[in-house]
Simulated assay, not measured.
Amino acid sequence: MPSLGASAAPRTTPDPAAARVPASARVPASGRVPASARSGERAAGPGLPGEAAAVPVRPGRGRPRSETVERAIIESVLRLLEEGVPLAELSIEGIARAAGVGKATIYRRWEGKEALFVDVLVAMEEPEPPLPGTSVRDDLVAILEGIRRRGLAKRSSAMMHSVVGQARRYPRLWEQYHRTVVDVRRHRMDAVLRRGIADGELRGDLTVELLGDILAGPMLTRTLLRTDSSLDEGLSETLVDALLAGLRPSA
């Protein structure tokens, strides 16, 4: 099975006048090339397809244009997936051709295919609803509502369901997706639960991790395991109210 990764090859002819993009800037936690490094393009190097070598830093073209190009690249990946191209068969060359850009344009924005595919998965996700902040109960309802809506989106989109399933087969991509998306959502819930314990709204004899599992578990079961079960409007409120009855401190 082909690898999704793209490794960086060293320059064979050093150019003293060329400013190299620091490795720390090219490999952030999310795998995304930071905006400060995107003016330094990467060009395809020798060897396997997808290998890259750094080239001289060029002046930036402005953030609005950068966002337009990034969106065009992500939409090209989505279009290829909709046409039935498996995730494993997508190549930087094919993506660049579909988007009408050069490979260097993609490498200037993403470290490799894993980082690009993480952004594609994020683009396919339902945006997180804002937390109202009025009470722990209301914030937990908003979090569970986000899970419910993502479940509905995956059920209604065969492509999304397929791509998420394929991503599980690639440990590096799946780990990156968890770090960039799933862990962020978990930390969001943890912060609400800690506030609930501190304010006396939630019992303090259970760990935040266990409280999160108790609250999110029923909704995740319906969205991931029991995909034939209903995800009706009002389910988030029903679950939170039922669970909070047992999670409030005793008198």
Rank of each mutant, 00 (worst) to 15 (best):
P2Y: 04
S7I: 00
S7Y: 03
A8E: 10
P10M: 11
R11H: 05
A17W: 09
A17E: 08
A18M: 09
A19R: 15
P22L: 10
P22K: 09
A23C: 14
A23Q: 15
R26C: 05
A29W: 06
S30R: 00
S36R: 13
G40V: 01
E41V: 11
A43I: 06
G45H: 01
G45N: 03
P46I: 03
L48F: 08
P49H: 06
G50T: 08
E51W: 03
E51I: 02
E51Y: 05
V57N: 14
P59T: 12
P59L: 12
R65C: 04
S66W: 07
T68I: 10
V69L: 13
E70Y: 02
A72V: 06
S76I: 04
L78Y: 03
L81A: 07
E83T: 06
P86C: 08
L90I: 06
S91M: 07
I92Y: 05
I92S: 07
G94N: 10
I95A: 07
I95K: 02
R97K: 11
A98E: 11
G100Y: 05
G100K: 02
T105W: 00
I106S: 00
Y107W: 09
R109Y: 05
G112W: 06
L116N: 06
L116W: 05
D119G: 00
L121W: 09
A123Y: 01
P129S: 14
P129M: 13
L131D: 08
V136E: 13
L140K: 13
A142G: 15
L144M: 11
G146Y: 13
R148I: 01
R150E: 14
L152R: 02
A153H: 00
K154L: 12
R155D: 04
A158T: 03
A158S: 04
M159P: 02
S162T: 06
R168V: 09
R172L: 05
R172N: 01
Y177H: 06
H178Q: 14
H178E: 14
V181R: 11
D183R: 10
D183Y: 07
V184D: 08
R185N: 08
R188S: 11
L193K: 09
G200L: 14
G204P: 12
T207H: 15
V208G: 14
V208K: 13
E209P: 10
E209I: 15
L210P: 08
D213H: 08
D213I: 12
D213C: 08
I214E: 02
P218Y: 07
L220D: 09
T227I: 01
S230T: 08
L231N: 04
D232Y: 07
T238Y: 03
L239M: 12
L239V: 15
D241R: 14
A242Q: 11
A242F: 05
A242T: 14
L244P: 10
A245P: 00
A245S: 08
L247Q: 09
P249N: 10
S250G: 14
S250F: 09
